[in-house]
Amino acid sequence: MSAALALGDDALVLSHRLGEWAGHAPVLEEEVALANIALDLLGQARMLLSFVGDEDELAFLREERSFRNLQLVEQPNGDFAHTIARQLYFSVYQHLLYERLAAGEGEFADLAAKAVKEVAYHRDHAEQWVLRLGDGTAESHERMQRGLDGLWRFTGELFEPVEGVDVDWQALRDGWLAAVTSVVERATLTPPSGPQSGAWAAGAGRQGLHTEPFGKMLAEMQHLHRSHPGASW
C-alpha cells in the first residue's frame, strides 16, 4: 500500500501544481500542454490511489503528514523555467521508474505499461524546453540555470527506496543522472554540482515530512471538498 500511496501522491501533487498554470502560461500552446500533462498525471493518481482506498477521501481529507509524495513535486511553480526544471527532474525519473515497473510482474506493471507511454511525452516536452531555454537568450539561459540549481537539492530523495517498489535504485539513479546531465550539457547549461540532499531532507517526503509551501497548496486543493462535504457538480 505504501508504494501506491507514494507514486499516487507524486502524480496527484504534481498534477495540482501544473494545474495552477491554467490562465498563466506564457503561450497558448503551453497552457494546453501543461494542462494535458496534469490530466495524464491525475489519471495515474486516480488509479494508484484506488489501490489504497477511496480516491476522493485520500486526496481531499488527508492531513499533510499523511501524504507520501516527494518534496520535489510540491515545490511552487516559480517562473516557467523553474517549472520546466521540475518537469525535467521528475519526468526523467518517472519515465525510467515506470519502464522498470512495466517490465516487471508487480502490482503496478499494467498501469506502468500504460502510463510510461504518456510519460515519454512529458519527458520529451521537458527536454525540448530545457534545450530551447538553455540555448536561447542570455535571460532564458540564466533563468533555466537558476531553476535547475534551485531544485537540485530535492533530487536525492528520488532514489530513496520505496517499500513495495522492486527496482534497482542505484541503477535508476545512474540512469537518471546520465540522462539529465546529457540534456543539460546539450542545452549549454552547467549540471548542478551541490549535494542532492541535506541530511534533514533525505527521504523526508516519503515519510510524511513536507516543506512549507505544501500546506498552503493542500489548503487550496482541499478547501472546496472540506467546506462542502459530499457536494457534486
Binding site: E29, E30, V32, A33, A35, N36, I37, L39, D40, K117, E118, Y121, D124, H125, Q128
Partner: peptide
Amino acid sequence: LSRFSSTACKALRRCVDCREPFDHFKEL
C-alpha cells in the same frame, strides 16, 4: 507546433505548404 493539443491524444501541427494548422492523432 506543440506535442499537446485540444485533447490528450492529439498534437498540433502546421502545414508548411498550405499554412493550415491541423491536429495529429499522436502515436502512443
